[in-house]
Nucleic acid binder design. Structure first.
Lengths: 218, 218
DNA sequence: CCCGTATTTTTTGTATACAAGATTGTTGAC
DNA sequence: GTCAACAATCTTGTATACAAAAAATACGGG
């Protein structure tokens, strides 16, 4: 249970990085952080290595660890891949999904709708996440589910930014309905297209994302 | 330059695991391996953690590191995802590919053909890899390229197994030609389908894969 | 004779100490 | 005054020492 500790350090660091306590090129001083977290450098280094492999920090040999936020281009690329991964999940899920899962999707959507009406962004996001994770699961491919979940987590902070834009939650809801209909109807290509367009960052969404990035930098 | 060292340990371990020196559930003893590689436990543990994140070993807290070869199911799942990733690369590349890259693909194919005639499996694999990596690149999405390359590498030993089956190389060649034609013709869906079918493990390929797995186990 | 428990032993996880390389500051020459 | 080379300092990477937890073994009770 003490591996837990390294995990917690990694997660805590993740939090700090995501929440903007650290800026983009900041060097992550090992001794400082070790003191701050009350552990020695050894587990802290292990945490850094994990974060490096997950892409949140860059590990330069003999130079140290640096916060590595994706720039606009890489971010677009990641969203493009996310859209395609979700599309694949949808295509597979349309053939393999269970009735219970469709119920769960409809349930998540209903709760989403309630959150929209209550202007509860956090609640909305929680149900939104459940919606997407259910689809990953129902792809029937555990490896795909893992990969999709990983990338979903990585993009979480940026997605949340976008939810703040007016009308986005309502539009997103409508898209969710279309996705469920395609899945329930067993239409693989329709489900894939609906999910790809739902996740892809295009048109207005693109401008919103860029705007939120500038806001963060300024 | 000394980060290199940890990399080398990880790579050496990878080699050992891939080449069958270690069997599937084997425990990787830290002190033994440290002695064997002539380093202390610290860098060795870091190497293990990397391998854990890349999926080659499983790190059980307070229990140790174990070799983790994917079973038949997970393997199928990984090939399914690989096929879809390559399909996406192809779809994007069909729109974005450069003339030089098409030349490179044709060149790789020509060399492949030569290797087939010379029954040079290694040579064939090298050119085959160049072929696929070029398509990843030409997707114009660096992140996608990275992910595809990672999975490609992970599946490498299993793919190689399959090349040994009679006629596989020749069939694969024909498929390569079709892929290049679709890319050169700027047909996204055709390129995607061709690549998906090329990579997917179905029909005869499925039985071949299963046979090679049993062979390995026996 | 077998099973459960306690003890010993091994092994992982963490801290600290040490070595090698990188960075920065200072001093001297042009 | 500026640039370069050297030295001092700091930081990373590695080794070792120590603590805690799990596995193995031995002992005792049933």
């Amino acid at each position: 249970m003490e591996q837990r500790r390294a995990d917690n350090i990694a997660e805590a660091l993740e939090e700090h990085i995501f929440s903007g306590i650290f800026q983009n090129g900041d060097r992550l001083d090992e001794v400082r952080l070790a003191e701050q977290f009350g552990v020695s450098r050894t587990p802290l280094r292990e945490a850094l290595q994990r974060l490096a492999l997950s892409g949140l920090v860059e590990l330069v040999p003999r130079r140290g660890a640096f916060v590595r936020q994706p720039g606009p281009i890489e971010l677009m690329e990641m969203f493009e891949v996310m859209a395609e991964l979700e599309a694949v999940c949808g295509r597979l899920a349309a053939r393999r999904i269970s009735d219970e899962a469709i119920e769960e999707l409809r349930d998540a959507n209903a709760r989403c709708q309630m959150a929209v009406e209550a202007r509860d962004t956090d609640g909305y996001y929680a149900e939104n996440e459940r919606f997407h994770k259910t689809i990953y699961q129902q792809s029937g491919n555990g490896f795909l589910e893992q990969e999709a979940t990983k990338l979903h987590k990585r993009l979480k902070p940026f997605r949340r930014q976008q939810l703040k834009f007016r009308g986005r939650m309502a539009q997103s809801m409508a898209e969710h309905e279309a996705i469920v209909d395609a899945l329930a109807g067993g239409e693989p290509e329709a489900a894939a297209d609906a999910l790809r367009n739902h996740v892809a960052v295009q048109g207005e969404k693109f401008h919103n994302l860029m705007a939120s990035l500038k806001q963060k930098a300024g």
